[in-house]
Simulated assay, not measured.
Amino acid sequence: MTDLDQAKAAVRDRVWRHLLAQGVVPDDSYGTIPGFHCAEATAERLAELEVWKDARTIKANPDWAQLPVRTRALQDGKLLYMAVPRMASLKPFYLLDPAALSLPLEEAAEKKGAEMTAQRIGVDEMRPIDVVVCGSVAVNRTGARIGKGAGYSDLEVALLIEAGLVSEATTIVAPVHQLQVIDEEIPEAEHDFRVDLIVTPDEVIPCEERRRPRGIVWESLTKKKVTEIPVLEKMFDARSSTPFFD
């Protein structure tokens, strides 16, 4: 583990422990994108924003914490993309079209429901993304964020940037509990992105220091990580001169 990894892990540990001590998340939240009390109010606050009202396509993480946001997207008639678990497919996203679902919207927005009813699609079948909803363990007011450490959110956004589907016109949002908004610096690597908006049950926080990778930062990936994600392995094979830095 690098010094940067250790610094990130320390931030996660502090935030998870604080959330549990304050009783605002379920007891099994350590190590997860924490589901938090009043998540429904966060979804409602997000839905009041013009950037949400104008959006036609939403890409959201599949964690329980953001279930109210995904449900609201379908209720509002938006196309919703969710990543297939661990991106373990050449078609690494689910497409949930509220006009074509065989389950009630609340069920379709769940991970199990999406697996049952949604179409799997490749990046080449997707429309440009208006809003990215990302799960976070902690964020600060510059927009720096930290997830649970698996790296999938960063890879999903990088893949969509590489494909031209996440652009400067895309808004990246972190719906979180107020206690997940921290005042301290969050360590960042080259492949990390920042969010444009933080939405809590209590407030909306614009973040003006935008930071996004140019696409996939191959130098940050190990051979093991690439071979675990079929779409990345296929892309890497087309870039055979790219070295791995294990």
Score class of each variant (00 low, 15 high):
96 L>F: 07
62 P>Q: 04
124 D>W: 08
202 D>C: 09
87 M>D: 10
96 L>S: 12
169 A>H: 14
108 A>H: 08
74 L>F: 03
157 V>D: 07
83 A>P: 15
82 M>V: 14
199 V>L: 05
173 V>R: 10
147 G>M: 11
108 A>L: 02
141 R>A: 14
195 V>R: 02
89 S>R: 03
100 A>V: 00
185 E>T: 14
187 P>G: 07
182 I>Q: 11
190 E>M: 11
162 E>I: 00
74 L>C: 10
135 G>V: 03
178 Q>P: 01
149 G>Q: 06
192 D>Q: 03
185 E>Y: 05
117 T>A: 15
180 Q>V: 02
160 L>S: 11
115 E>A: 15
178 Q>N: 12
95 L>W: 04
86 R>C: 03
78 K>T: 05
77 G>E: 09
80 L>Q: 13
112 K>Q: 14
138 A>M: 08
64 W>R: 15
142 T>L: 13
131 V>P: 07
147 G>A: 08
122 G>R: 12
149 G>P: 10
133 V>N: 13
97 D>N: 14
105 L>H: 14
201 P>F: 02
105 L>S: 11
98 P>A: 09
108 A>Q: 06
179 L>R: 14
88 A>G: 06
156 E>N: 03
73 A>E: 04
179 L>E: 15
115 E>C: 01
99 A>R: 14
128 P>F: 00
170 T>K: 04
137 V>F: 02
181 V>R: 05
105 L>Y: 09
139 V>G: 01
183 D>E: 15
63 D>P: 06
135 G>E: 04
105 L>T: 10
123 V>R: 06
162 E>F: 00
114 A>N: 03
145 R>V: 01
131 V>T: 02
117 T>Y: 00
151 G>V: 01
172 I>T: 15
130 D>N: 09
162 E>Y: 01
84 V>W: 02
153 S>C: 13
76 D>Q: 08
141 R>C: 11
171 T>F: 00
81 Y>V: 07
171 T>P: 03
159 L>I: 14
159 L>C: 10
179 L>V: 05
128 P>H: 03
82 M>W: 06
79 L>I: 13
141 R>E: 14
132 V>A: 13
189 A>F: 00
144 A>G: 05
96 L>P: 13
121 I>F: 07
78 K>E: 13
113 G>Y: 02
79 L>P: 01
153 S>Q: 13
160 L>F: 13
113 G>D: 07
75 Q>M: 10
123 V>L: 14
68 P>H: 07
158 A>D: 09
162 E>W: 02
203 E>W: 00
77 G>K: 03
172 I>N: 06
138 A>R: 07
176 V>Q: 01
186 I>D: 09
67 L>H: 14
78 K>C: 05
100 A>K: 15
93 F>G: 09
71 T>M: 11
125 E>R: 13
122 G>Y: 06
61 N>Q: 11
79 L>C: 01
123 V>E: 11
150 A>I: 01
88 A>L: 12
87 M>C: 13
106 E>A: 15
170 T>Q: 09
95 L>D: 08
83 A>M: 11
201 P>A: 06
104 P>E: 07
127 R>K: 15
198 I>P: 12
78 K>I: 06
124 D>N: 13
137 V>E: 08
78 K>Q: 06
197 L>M: 13
138 A>N: 07
122 G>A: 14
137 V>I: 10
167 S>N: 12
76 D>F: 01
156 E>F: 01
150 A>T: 11
100 A>L: 08
194 R>N: 12
89 S>L: 06
154 D>R: 02
115 E>L: 03
